Computed example of a mutant assay.
Amino acid sequence: MIATLPGGYYADEGVFALEQAEIFESIWFCAVRAAELDRPGAFRTVQVGRESVLLTRSRDGSIRASSTCAATGAPGSAPRSPTR
């Protein structure tokens, strides 16, 4: 049988903060596949660690990412789900 971490690690705020800092906030993270933003104007909001991120396909075909407000989707109060 494979050993697991003691149960306290799963609810420890210090361990959570360390995981966020060392995993989600210090290295590249694949949030969506480019094919999911298949046309200009397509967008997704995703949670990456403690940040809400808005990903959009621009008119020139590039993909852009920006941090958003988790409560409102701001900047621009973007909708929370993609339009298809």
Rank of each mutant, 00 (worst) to 15 (best):
M1C: 11
M1V: 10
G14F: 00
G14E: 07
S58I: 00
M1E: 07
A21S: 12
C30R: 13
V46Q: 12
R50M: 03
E51L: 12
E25H: 10
P82F: 06
F16G: 01
G41C: 04
T83K: 10
A11M: 02
Q47L: 15
Y9K: 08
W28E: 14
S58L: 12
Q47A: 14
A17Y: 06
L54Y: 08
E51R: 15
S66D: 06
A21P: 00
W28A: 13
Q47M: 14
F24D: 03
S77L: 14
P40L: 10
S77M: 09
R84E: 12
F29L: 05
S58P: 01
D38G: 15
I2Y: 08
T68L: 03
T83I: 04
A17F: 03
L37K: 01
P6E: 12
D60L: 09
L5I: 08
L55R: 00
V32Q: 05
T45L: 14
I2D: 10
R64W: 14
P6W: 00
S58R: 11
R44G: 00
A42L: 03
R59A: 15
S66P: 01
Q20R: 13
I63M: 07
T56C: 08
R84P: 09
D60Q: 12
L37A: 02
G41D: 02
G61R: 14
